[in-house]
Design a binder for these strands. Structure first.
Lengths: 235, 235
DNA sequence: GGCTCTACTTGAACGCGTTCAAGTAGAGCC
DNA sequence: GGCTCTACTTGAACGCGTTCAAGTAGAGCC
């Protein structure tokens, strides 16, 4: 639409981003300097800051990339499978598969992502859109399956599953078994447990318990996580 | 025992640490420079590095301090109460109470603690002693209570409770409600749920489920979390 | 009193993320 | 062709964590 305004800038932006991601892959995040990125991209250091607020913000691009890959991979699974088990398992496996190539710098990613003041923080307002999208995948896992759930459970479950997924990723980040085999095992076994839990909760006996759990979760989510503390500045 | 060897050095070390903690409280972690710490302590910058490997390592001291306070506070509760509910609630409340004064720089704490390559990481080999101690508190919560649990559950539950506690702290870190009221509410409500879960698991109906859950948890814990990835250097 | 050894201490210098004042190049208008 | 405006670009400089070569002071020994 406005090719004049963007084309040149967009190109520079892309050059910087590619240079950054290449170098991150090659030698890791910490070992990559902004000077090196600028040099590889053929621009001045200052220019990188014209396009990206900070070194951390360069990660956000990579983040988005992974997310999109996962969405695509999930779509395939969800178009194929009808069983709740297969759908959940497929989506979870797709997630691990997508992030596997980046395992070596997962730590840094997580470190910045975990900072409450960071825009990369998955609970932050800035990443709400991505979080919502990710939750929607789980909503689809449930909605498109041949298993019928009580409405209350179906309403809150996607958020719980998103949290569950975050837990698995947390384990994965710390996992250095070959090929992250332990993470895959955790994922498979815990999916089974999650499904058992879900079917258990259909028992009337457990209804009051489920109800309390769900209202708690919903209540805690109700007020969106507030903005980063003003006192705390990101470095 | 060796007062000669240590006294002078220990004193300098203490000076630096106090200066650091004071400044952290006053203006936060990021805003405090090593130069400022050194100046306040009346030593040269380089000297601070003789006693502490890095700025991050200064946090570890604070970490240890909090942990000890919590142990003391828990002991009081555990000496008083016999009910499982009261004991767990008391220990969890003590935890929040202990860390509350440091809420403002919890973010930074967590950020470094979350880095798999950091010595502060609660899963790291370096913090195993503290983790074990913390888990032992939960073991005592159970052992000293008037509630009888199946041996398998009693064996694995402390670890699960430690993880549960970590989850609550994670929420607290991101909580900016006044006085962290939401965190306290989460804690109280989730303790109730945990207790219900525990009693639910005494039903024979749920035994196989419990068994699978426990073997999974035990299995994942069995191999200790390996050393930090070699590729990943801490900045 | 001098020698040696060890535990501590210094501060200049380095590397790197980030900022900012000073450009520059092209588009649009006259 | 010149004027102006905007989008982009530059690289020197700053601040801060960290390192390191060069001390220094006291203890123990002769």
């Amino acid at each position: 639409m406005e090719p004049k305004k963007t084309s040149k800038g967009e190109q520079t932006r892309a050059q910087i981003l590619e240079a950054a991601l290449d170098l991150f892959r090659e030698r890791g995040y910490e070992q990559t300097t902004m000077r090196a990125i600028a040099e590889k991209a053929g621009v001045a250091v200052g220019n990188a800051y014209y396009y990206f607020e900070s070194k951390e913000h360069l990660i956000q691009a990579f983040y988005a990339r992974t997310h999109e890959e996962h969405m695509a991979a999930s779509r395939e699974v969800l178009d194929q499978e009808r069983g709740l088990r297969e759908r959940l398992l497929g989506v979870m496996r797709a997630k691990l598969d997508t992030i596997m190539p980046y395992h070596q710098f997962a730590g840094v990613l997580f470190k910045t992502a975990a900072n409450p003041a960071s825009p990369l923080n998955p609970f932050s307002a800035e990443s709400l859109p991505v979080r919502r999208q990710a939750t929607e995948i789980f909503a689809e896992v449930i909605a498109g399956s041949d298993t019928r759930l009580t409405p209350e459970l179906a309403a809150e479950l996607p958020n719980v599953l998103w949290l569950y997924q975050a837990g698995v990723i947390l384990y994965w980040i710390h996992d250095s078994s070959p090929g992250c085999a332990r993470s895959y095992r955790l994922m498979e076994r815990s999916v089974k447990l999650v499904l058992r839990l879900i079917s258990l909760f259909q028992f009337p006996l457990l209804r009051p318990f489920l109800k309390e759990l769900l209202t708690m979760v919903a209540d805690l989510r109700s007020e969106p996580m507030p903005a980063p503390l003003p006192a705390q500045t990101v470095e």
